[in-house]
Each structure stands twice: as C-alpha cells, then as structure tokens.
Amino acid sequence: MGEPNKIKLGISIGDINGIGCEVALKTFLDNRMLDFCTPIFYASNKTISEQKKRLGLEISFQGIPSAEKAHPGKINVCNVWKENPRIQFGEATEEGGKFAIKSLRAAVNALKKNEIDVLVTAPINKNNIQAEDFKFPGHTDFLAKELGGDSLMFMVSDDLRVGLLTDHVAVKNVANEITTKRVKDKVFTMMNSLKVDFGIRKPKIALLGINPHSGDNGTIGEEDEKIMKPAIASMFDDGHQVYGPYSADSFFGSGNHKNFDAVIAAYHDQGLIPFKTLAFGKGVNFTAGLSKVRTSPDHGTAYEIAGKGMADASSFTEAVFLALKVFKNREEYAELSKNPLKKHQLKKKTKAQ
C-alpha cells in the first residue's frame, strides 16, 4: 500500500481510438511506478476495461467517484461518464472527440480544485475535438484559458529544451504573430520556468531567427532586424543571458544547442522537427507558465498502430516523471523563497559545484 500523501497524478485519456489509453496503461504495468505517485484516469470503468481487454493488457484498477477517494498504491479510474462509447481503433470519429474532451474537462476541473496535483494528457485529435463549447486548436490554448498565465509550449528531454514563440499557427501568419512584446514575454516565461521548474539559477537562452539565415541583415525579410535583434539586445542589456537570433538551419546540426539551457524557436516546425529528430520517444511536451503542472507525450494519436499493442509508452512514462519532478521543484522553490537562508546556502552550494 502506498503512502496517502503521494502526488496525485491525473490522466486525461485522449482519443479513445488512438494510442492514449494504451501508453498510459502500459506506463503503470510496472508496479514500481505506483511508488512515485497515485495515478487517476479520468474516464469510466467500462471504457478502461474494454481498452485493456482489446489490447491484451493484464492490469487491475479501482473505480472511484472522485479523486479524494483514490487508493494509494493502485491505479484509479474516476468515473466521468456512464455511457459506453464505441471504440473504433484507428478512426477519427465524432464520438472519439466528444469523450476526449469529457475526460480533459473533468481532469482540468479536478486540477483547478486541487483534487489532483499534476496532469498528464494523452493525445487528442485536433479535428474531432472541435465543438460549440470547445474551439481550441489543442491542449495548450485550452489550458492557458482555464489555468491562467502566459503559456509556453516547451518540449523537454534529458539534454534538450525547445520552446516556441508561436505554436499552432499557420506558417503564413507566423511573422505577423511575432512582436517585440511577444518575444520578451515568451523569453521571461521560459526563464522563470527554467528557474522554478528545473532548478537552473542563471538560465542561458538562445533564440532562432524567423527568416532563413536570420534575414541576412534584412536581405531575406526584415523581421529579425526590426523585432528579434532589438528585443534580444534589450534583454541582454538588462543583464539576462539571452542570445541570438541564430540561423536555424545549422543551429542543431552544429551542436550549438548544447551551449544553452534552452532554445526558443520562432514557429512550430522550426523547433519540433529537430527536437523530435533528436529526442523522439523520450521527449515530453510541458506547458510552462501555467499555475499548475501539465505534461504530455511528444507524439499524437498514432491511428495507424492504434489497437495493435505496438505503441511505445516511453514518452508517456517520461511525461509522468517530468510532471512529478516539476511539481517537487516548485514546492522546493516556494520553500526556499520563504526561507532566505536556505536559498543562500543553495546558491553557495551551486557555485561550489
């Protein structure tokens, strides 16, 4: 039996026709995972039972009416619906989207009420989740509205962290979305996250240019000259370790990313293509800047392998560990902030190392 004060980890199950339930359940096939947290799936007994049966997973769970009734040392399923939605692995159905949102809303509501401590979200389909009461391009925008703060899509692995100035924005609109204020806001959100969530006292951040070769001094677009460079210079002059803009085409291939604690890319594919190339399967999508901790795996619904038992749970498992780590780091940071002596001692220890 686990300790009652273990971190309560909420899980929204994502699209029931994708690999979300599979990777989440596989993560807890190893009972040792229950030593680290108390997992709570937001779904229904029937849905989870059918998923594990069809996937051939030998795993037990406890059905509960709410998170406060969760059993430490066991997998818990908080019953959010009484219906028995039809599971059609590999298909993007309206029903799949409907129940993905039901799970997400229930889990986020529990997070807001402090019934759970952290949230890990399984993949959703950005098309079938759209509804009259849910018009968001994905998790990040919905969570930013529900939980407040200046959110930052932050991809994290052991030795690589990549944030985005713009996330789910059409390429044709990227340049118009990037302003001096947005650059500074995202940098400061990342900087605060690196300090509070990752324990990095003096973070060093690189920014990638918007245009090829960062605009070649205005020859290939003026955005880098007029927006990026002035914003970076202003922050650097204020004493922050912010550098760039670097030409994106050679930045990762040259290994330059290893010289920084984190990198900010101008748009989605500029950051996620190299991240997923270098860290796929071990990477985690972390939403920095929120009042609560949320992570997710670095992959999508993977309809092409859904229901075949082939899904690799590594990224979901990493998402669980990162959520727990960030939660503990935030607690430690809050404690240090209350006790200046401890903070001073930690700084001295950091310098000595």
Rank of each mutant, 00 (worst) to 15 (best):
A262G: 03
L278T: 01
G63W: 02
A107V: 07
N127F: 05
L119N: 05
L9V: 01
E94R: 15
A262H: 05
N176C: 05
L207R: 07
F316L: 10
K135N: 14
S12D: 08
E58L: 11
S314K: 13
A302H: 05
P230H: 07
I129D: 10
I11Y: 12
P39S: 09
N79I: 03
I210F: 09
T47F: 07
D167E: 11
E95K: 12
S337T: 00
V320N: 12
I13H: 06
H240G: 00
S234Q: 15
P72D: 08
G209Q: 02
R161P: 00
G307Q: 08
A233I: 02
L29P: 00
G18H: 07
T317S: 14
G2S: 12
A110L: 06
P85W: 13
F260N: 02
L25S: 12
F275G: 11
S315H: 10
A107E: 11
G239H: 11
A288N: 11
T295S: 12
G307C: 07
L34N: 11
K282R: 14
N31R: 15
Y333R: 13
G307A: 08
K342T: 02
E22S: 10
K46F: 05
K135Y: 06
E115G: 07
P274E: 12
L164H: 10
A131Y: 06
P4D: 09
K343P: 00
E95D: 06
L341K: 13
A265D: 04
F327V: 01
A352F: 08
G289S: 14
N109R: 15
A248C: 01
F316V: 07
R201P: 02
A311N: 09
T27A: 15
M235H: 07
N45G: 14
A100N: 04
T189I: 04
S49E: 15
F236Q: 15
K181G: 00
N109W: 03
A107Q: 14
D141H: 05
K126Q: 07
N217T: 03
G281P: 01
D150V: 02
L207A: 02
D298P: 02
P274N: 11
D167P: 00
S193N: 06
H268L: 13
P39Y: 11
G300A: 12
G138T: 04
P230V: 03
T301I: 13
A313R: 13
F236K: 15
D15W: 08
L143Y: 09
D159L: 04
L272I: 03
K258E: 01
S214G: 01
V80D: 13
V120M: 06
L143H: 11
G10V: 06
K292T: 04
A233D: 07
